[in-house]
């Protein structure tokens, strides 16, 4: 259904020196910086698959989705969705896809939800009978009845997102792209939305590509995940595989009394634990990753307590979060090593 080969997207960012002088200088000759947002990625998604597309902020997820929907033209590489090259036949592609982009609405702002759907019915040329049947189904699953008469601008975020999802699936598209559909929603709404997505897939065989920061979304909806980091795919496989491959992984976050700049791993555990890259946000935080085949969590904690004054700690077990964190950590590490070599 979705075939992507060596896909790349480079953004050109106009660079200029700070201040008025820089502004004036940039009028005459502009310097450009190239940002490689997506680098030679490959993926092959079959009809009816539900794939989680995950990665840190700025990893290139939205850029990829924009290329798949035809909004962006790739710098190089190939994309085919349902046999169509999206950026060349944008309108043709559009009739077979649905999309939700985070907090941006696809609906018509000022008019009631029901009228928005009516317009979409005409835009996508949905047969009346099918439209009525679909709408009735969606209203049931997403509990839209009380919202239909309200203009979109008056809806709460959760209500809007439910309406938004219905709009994306209304024309029974073959593929639906969901770019952070659950961001900022409360648990009850998330549950409803997940159920809806699963039902659509089961009933209509809709292919779904989902990006989210909520691993619960991924665990419940997707059979497969693709992890992207800094524009490159660093993992593509089933959730089962990743769990058994990394299932013995544990991460413990230590909150130290002192700033952790000069932190070194105690020698006794340095063979079997790894320090994950530290965030700038919390200078006291040190995260250690290890496999519980090699060392027990208790021993790691014990050793750390002996060497440092620990204010607090959290143990993350082999949930998908931990694993992903671990994989990001490696991705970043690779890069650091790269720089050292050059």
């Amino acid at each position: 259904m979705i075939v992507v080969k060596n896909l790349e997207k480079h953004y050109k960012i106009a660079k200029r020196d700070p201040g008025l002088r820089g502004a004036i200088k940039s009028l005459f000759h502009r310097k450009f910086e190239t940002k490689k947002a997506v680098k030679k990625i490959n993926m092959h998604i079959k009809a009816g698959e539900m794939v989680g597309y995950i990665g840190a902020n700025g990893a290139g997820k939205s850029t990829t989705i924009k290329m798949l929907t035809g909004i962006l033209t790739p710098t190089s590489g190939e994309v085919k969705v349902n046999g169509i090259i999206p950026y060349e036949n944008r309108q043709q592609n559009a009739s077979h896809i649905g999309a939700v982009f985070g907090q941006r609405t696809q609906l018509f702002w000022d008019i009631p939800v029901r009228e928005s759907y009516e317009l979409l019915k005409h835009i996508y040329e949905i047969p009346q009978a099918q439209y009525e049947e679909t709408l009735k189904e969606f209203v049931d699953v997403l509990h839209l009845e009380p919202l239909l008469g309200i203009p979109v601008r008056q809806l709460s975020l959760g209500q809007k997102m439910r309406c938004e999802l219905a709009a994306a699936f209304l024309h029974r598209p073959k593929v639906v792209y969901l770019d952070e559909p659950t961001i900022g929603l409360d648990v009850a709404v998330k549950v409803r939305i997940r159920a809806f997505i699963k039902q659509m897939n089961a009933r209509y065989g809709t292919t779904v590509l989902l990006t989210t920061h909520d691993m619960q979304d991924i665990e419940e909806i997707c059979q497969r995940i693709i992890i992207i980091d800094d524009g490159s795919v660093i993992y593509d496989g089933s959730i089962q595989d990743i769990k058994s491959q990394f299932g013995d992984k544990r991460v413990i976050h230590f909150e130290l009394e002192d700033a952790a700049d000069s932190f070194v791993l105690p020698e006794t555990i340095s063979e079997v634990t790894e320090v994950l890259p530290r965030s700038d946000e919390d200078p006291h935080l040190v995260s250690l990753s290890f496999s519980n085949k090699n060392i027990s969590g208790a021993e790691v904690i014990h050793t750390m307590m002996n060497h440092y004054s620990v204010a607090d700690l959290t143990i993350a077990d082999a949930k998908i979060e931990t694993i992903v964190e671990e994989i990001y950590g490696r991705g970043m590490k690779k890069e650091v090593q790269h720089e050292e070599i050059h």
Binding site: Q91, A94, F101, R104
Partner: peptide, 11 residues
């Protein structure tokens, strides 16, 4: 970013 919306419609 509202312009994106127009690009994913079949019109």
């Amino acid at each position: 970013g509202k312009f994106d919306r127009l690009l994913i419609r079949p019109i």
